[in-house]
Amino acid sequence: MNASLSINDLHVSVDGTEIIKGLTLEIPKGEVHAIMGPNGSGKSTLAKVLAGHEDYEVTGGSVTMDGQDVLGMEIDERSRAGLFLAFQYPHEIPGVSNANFLRAALQARLPKGEEIDAVAFYKEMYARMDELEMDRKFTGRSVNEGFSGGEKKRNEILQMMMLEPSFAILDETDSGLDIDALRIVAQGVNSMRSPARGFLVITHYQRLLDYIVPDHVHVMFDGRIVRSGDKSLALELEEKGYDWVKEELAA
């Protein structure tokens, strides 16, 4: 059994159009991998397909998590098995408070008949909210409803911290964040880095990677990973722009 999230020659289509065209990537626990790429290259598609979104059809390849087949699992099974996706566009859930939602998510991880310890839960949640500098009033507010872009992203990180996944995919968590919020969110993510956890950080800009320093950087273009390297690749990309990758590919 290998302790990693392992994607092998993955092909994905939507309505007959291939979007992911043979993607291979291995994220061992303990590492942070970043995927960068121009808009439309298929980054969010990859994230959603890993989470099990039904709009996307996997036409080839495999995904395993700690050696276990992921593609055969239901969406919620994947989550409970330790896969977390911080959404680029987090959904609103009218009428359901943040606290109740988190509680239900944690409860779903307990064996039948076992009840979550409410006191411990609130203690933990408040501690995490303090780290993320989130006001306590967010516990009672409906999930993401009326939240600003930045508040939604913080809320995603709060959920990640509470659910303690073994693999976390962060899809453009930096977009919509001002510099202070970016720093706070990055601190939250960094505090979660551990030998028992792997990260896939999707971003359009290198800025985030100043705060969450990756072990590996991959460049995605047109449904494939076209280049991999260490964190200096991100800087190079920032400097030369995505056109540089495109030109190299064409050459």
Partner: peptide, 24 residues
């Protein structure tokens, strides 16, 4: 997409639906 979001956090489809309806 709302159900997908909730399921991604570990709720079964039925639990996600119940919670959404209760929220309503």
């Amino acid at each position: 997409d709302q159900i997908f979001y909730m399921q991604q956090r570990g709720l079964s489809e039925a639990e996600a639906m119940s919670l959404s309806v209760n929220g309503f």
